[in-house]
Computed example of a mutant assay.
Amino acid sequence: MEIFNHNSNINFLGMRKFSIGLAVLLMLASIVLIATRGLDYGLDFTGGVSAEVAYTQPVAIGDVREALAKAGMEHAVVQSLGGTREVSIRLQPTQAMMDDGGKVNLDKVSDVIGKALHASRADASIKSRSSVSSQVGDELRSDGVIAAIFVIVGIGLYLWIRFERRFAIAALATEVHDVLLTLGILVLMKREFDLTVLASVLAVIGYSINDKVVVFDRIRELFRLARKAEPVDVLNRSINTTLSRTIITSLFTGITMAALYFIGGPVVHGFAVTMLIGIVVGTLSSIFVASPILLWLGVSKKDLMPQTKENPELARRP
Rank of each mutant, 00 (worst) to 15 (best):
S120P: 05
V136A: 14
E86N: 03
V153K: 10
V53M: 06
G137P: 07
T308S: 12
E74C: 10
L188S: 09
V112G: 14
I155R: 07
S19F: 15
K309G: 10
T242C: 08
V145P: 01
E2A: 10
V187G: 06
P306I: 11
L181V: 15
S133M: 13
I255Y: 07
V273W: 08
I169Q: 06
S250A: 15
Y261E: 09
A116N: 01
V77C: 06
E52V: 12
G83M: 10
A60L: 04
N5H: 08
S120A: 09
P266L: 06
L28V: 15
V24L: 08
L106K: 01
N7C: 03
R16K: 06
S30K: 13
V109H: 11
A54I: 07
I89F: 11
A290M: 12
A147Y: 11
I3D: 12
E310I: 10
T242D: 02
V176D: 11
M1V: 03
V213N: 03
V49E: 10
D143S: 15
L91E: 04
V49L: 12
D99K: 00
A290R: 05
K108C: 12
V268M: 02
L22W: 02
L314R: 14
D40T: 15
S19M: 11
S50M: 04
W160I: 15
P93F: 09
Y41M: 02
